[in-house]
Design a binder for these strands. Structure first.
Length: 348
DNA sequence: GAGCCGTGGTA
DNA sequence: TTACCAAGGCT
């Protein structure tokens, strides 16, 4: 394989470009393994521009692992509000607690130990090891698979998990032992700004090493076959006020979609009328029902069609205790995007 | 291994 | 508007 023979030249071209062109990102100004860890978790399936303000606020609120360890779930969810994939922050806290308790507050520096931490998979383990500690370990994400599939003309389906090891082995062949941190970040940076899905090959620092470019196949790579079908769910949400003007809110279950976030009571609609379905499902009686808004919210795998209503309770005596909150209290609770959209439609 | 788990940007 | 994407991991 010709690129292996030119390994040193490839490394130099890539690293020189990275040193000259790399973006000035907050987490590139530190080697603190805890901060690198936070950034890597936030960056999972999430764009750099989105992450930056969350990262800044998070390390300001929880500057040390001790601080994060002692935080309440409500606090950490609030700091994650709007970022998505909320289990990430619970797993992060769980992993940090384990480091504090088991490793004396020192993030371990071997793949085996660090991979055992909650929320740390093969990519994040390699990223922390190489970026924070300089360990020459692979950190294969979507960028790296796209970049290497082109440079090495790897035509295996990157949607299949078992093909990851092809790319991990390739990185271990090519990685710079002297600067594993910059090498791994450079591959990702290249994928983020040059070797994008629509590649800008004329600006590429390693064009001369790219087999796909040589053969004009860069647009056809990477091969990604799997595509998911979406589910559609129709929901009715009710913003219900009591006599004091407070609003009925409930917390979602601790696992699953939008786990632990707060929302107005919702029911899934089949054929029945929204009010009828709600009263049947909850045992509550509504009055003064008016329509608030209707919109769709797209998740990665589900589409919610939400009908939102404003209402009051006909019968305040309920078997279960109902919790009502003021506008100020609601603003302080962690909420999902759909809920925030409903709130925006309310004429307070 | 396939499905689940958010959100915002982009063509 | 639709579809796909973006520094993945868990079950």
């Amino acid at each position: 394989m010709q690129i292996i023979e030119q390994k040193k030249a490839f490394q130099q071209a890539l690293l020189s470009w990275y040193e000259a062109e790399k973006r000035d990102l907050p987490w590139r100004r530190t080697n603190n393994p805890y901060y690198i860890w936070i950034s890597e978790v936030m960056l999972q399936q999430t764009r750099v521009d989105t992450v930056i303000p969350y990262y800044e606020r998070f390390i300001e609120k929880f500057p040390t692992m001790q601080d994060l360890s002692e935080a309440k779930e409500e606090e950490i969810l609030k700091m994650w509000e709007g970022l998505g994939y909320y289990s990430r922050v619970r797993n992060l806290q769980s992993g940090v607690r384990e480091v504090v308790e088991t490793y004396g507050g020192e993030v371990p520096n071997t793949r085996e130990k660090i991979s055992a931490l909650k929320g740390v998979g093969p990519y994040t383990a390699g990223a922390i090891l190489s970026i924070a500690y300089g360990v020459p370990e692979h950190a294969v994400d979507g960028n790296v698979m796209r970049v290497l599939s082109r440079i090495l003309l790897i035509e295996e389906d990157i949607a299949l998990p078992r093909n990851r090891k092809i790319f991990e082995q390739a990185v271990m062949e090519l990685i710079s032992e002297e600067d594993a941190s910059s090498f791994n970040q450079a591959l990702m940076e290249l994928g983020a700004v040059i070797c994008t899905p629509n590649p800008r090959c004329l600006l590429c620092p390693v064009r001369d090493f790219c087999i796909a470019f040589e053969e004009g196949k860069q647009q056809q790579l990477p091969i990604k076959l799997k595509k998911q079908k979406k589910k559609y769910v129709s929901l009715a949400a009710f913003a219900i006020q009591n006599e004091e003007g407070k609003w009925l809110l409930q917390k979602r279950p601790g696992t699953g979609l939008l786990a632990g976030l707060w929302e107005f009571p919702m029911v899934e609609l089949q054929e029945l009328d929204a009010v009828e379905t709600f009263e049947k499902d909850t045992g509550l009686k509504l009055k003064k029902v008016t329509e608030l808004t209707r919109f769709s919210h797209l998740f990665s795998h589900i589409t919610w069609d939400i009908h939102a209503y404003r209402a009051q309770l006909e019968d305040v005596t309920s078997k279960e205790p109902l919790n009502f909150y003021t506008k100020e209290q609601i603003e302080a609770l962690p909420k999902s995007k759909p809920v925030m959209k409903i709130i925006e439609s309310i004429d307070w």
